[in-house]
Amino acid sequence: MAPELSTAHRVVRWDLPGHGGSAAGLVGAGATVGDLAGLVLRLADSLGVERFAYAGVSLGGAVGLHLALHHPERVSSLAVICSSAHFNGSKPWEERAELVRREGLAGLAESADARWFTPGFAVPRLVDDHRNADPEAYAACCDALAAFDLRDRLAEISVPTLLIAGREDPATPPAHLREIADAVPGAALVEIPGASHLAPAERPEAVLTALRTHFSGGALRGMEVRREVLGDAHVDRAQSRQTAFTARFQDFISRYAWGEIWTDPTLARRERSMITMTALVAHGHYDELAMHVRAARRNGLTPEEIGAVLLQTAVYCGVPAANSAFAVAQRVLAEEDGERA
């Protein structure tokens, strides 16, 4: 996923202490999420990075929440993936830390697939990394999770925030991400179907699309405009039908059509609606026409003005095309009258 993001962003990945190439001695017993956040800031300082967008999974997501709360001047935007503002109390993590200090990580690695992925899915390399982590550093990370709880301060987070939940995640279920989304002003929540706790590994395209949209200002504005013009119900249906196969296309629509074209102030939205309806009639896209007749009403066109646009298409697109278009528009306008009644 980092290579794909790096086409538009400078991407810096960091390992938890004692994981991958990160030194185990960076933290010790009794470590906190704040300690880990401090390591991230030290890394950014060493690279000359003053302000950055941040995305983190699980404990990494908790680090992102801490950074956004305590160092908002350093974080331009935040994505919290399969994480939480709390991790179900201290006891389970204290017990896990004690177990790992006593027996190492081999036993936990054996159950990693069940904790991280949906049944039948596995990434052996990630499990091997888990098994090979330094036990003391891993236990210190458990200590950090045991002490972490930001629920009463979430409303203080002011940076643009995206929450990504794996719909089948037992460790940090969607309800945990929804709790953050409901508390952080302006936060957005995306649920990834068919994904458990390591959603970026299991559904990389879907997570990548969400991150691209969030970290691209045009895409974020594009989604806002798309909802304003087409309505929440339509956009929610489109999002719910999104799959790994269609994810890049949905991202393209949000970034290009809605984030660049529809946001261009040269033309008013009502003018864009007129042009769009004409183009749809010309190409016979009547299902799309129905959607954009509704959009035209949202953009301020009256039924009489919509009729005038369609009458114009009879001259330049042909009477049969206009005839079909009038039938579609009449049905949509009648449905809208019925909804208002």
Rank of each mutant, 00 (worst) to 15 (best):
218 G>N: 14
200 P>T: 07
209 T>K: 05
146 A>S: 12
165 A>H: 05
158 S>M: 05
155 A>V: 10
198 L>S: 11
181 A>C: 09
157 I>V: 15
193 P>Q: 11
177 L>A: 13
219 A>M: 11
147 A>P: 02
145 L>A: 13
205 E>M: 12
195 A>Y: 02
216 S>E: 10
225 V>E: 13
216 S>K: 02
201 A>W: 04
216 S>W: 07
142 C>A: 12
160 P>D: 08
217 G>S: 09
220 L>W: 14
192 I>E: 00
197 H>K: 10
170 P>T: 09
177 L>E: 14
170 P>S: 07
216 S>A: 11
155 A>F: 05
163 L>Y: 00
146 A>E: 00
203 R>G: 01
213 T>R: 14
196 S>V: 03
213 T>G: 12
221 R>C: 03
196 S>R: 15
143 D>R: 00
225 V>N: 03
182 D>M: 10
205 E>I: 02
182 D>E: 15
189 L>V: 06
220 L>E: 11
171 A>C: 09
137 A>R: 02
185 P>D: 06
184 V>N: 00
169 D>Y: 04
163 L>H: 00
218 G>W: 08
179 E>Q: 11
212 R>P: 01
166 G>P: 10
226 R>E: 12
141 C>P: 04
197 H>D: 08
167 R>S: 13
184 V>L: 04
138 Y>F: 14
188 A>T: 15
168 E>T: 12
167 R>D: 12
183 A>E: 07
139 A>L: 05
149 D>P: 09
184 V>I: 15
191 E>G: 03
187 A>T: 01
153 R>Y: 01
204 P>D: 10
186 G>I: 10
193 P>E: 09
180 I>R: 00
157 I>T: 04
155 A>P: 04
219 A>G: 15
162 L>Q: 03
205 E>Y: 01
214 H>S: 08
198 L>E: 04
203 R>H: 06
214 H>P: 07
228 E>T: 11
175 A>E: 14
216 S>G: 13
225 V>C: 04
228 E>K: 09
143 D>Q: 03
179 E>A: 12
215 F>G: 01
196 S>A: 15
172 T>I: 06
221 R>N: 07
144 A>L: 03
188 A>G: 09
154 L>D: 00
173 P>C: 10
181 A>Y: 00
139 A>E: 01
215 F>D: 02
203 R>V: 04
151 R>C: 10
154 L>A: 03
226 R>P: 02
211 L>C: 07
163 L>E: 04
189 L>M: 09
223 M>L: 14
144 A>P: 05
139 A>N: 05
141 C>I: 03
187 A>F: 00
206 A>L: 15
200 P>N: 05
154 L>C: 07
228 E>H: 12
194 G>M: 06
139 A>S: 11
155 A>E: 12
165 A>S: 13
152 D>E: 13
206 A>F: 00
150 L>W: 02
227 R>Q: 12
155 A>K: 13
174 P>R: 03
192 I>H: 01
161 T>E: 01
214 H>I: 10
197 H>N: 07
224 E>M: 09
175 A>D: 09
160 P>R: 07
183 A>M: 06
211 L>F: 08
162 L>W: 04
204 P>V: 08
214 H>V: 09
149 D>K: 04
219 A>C: 14
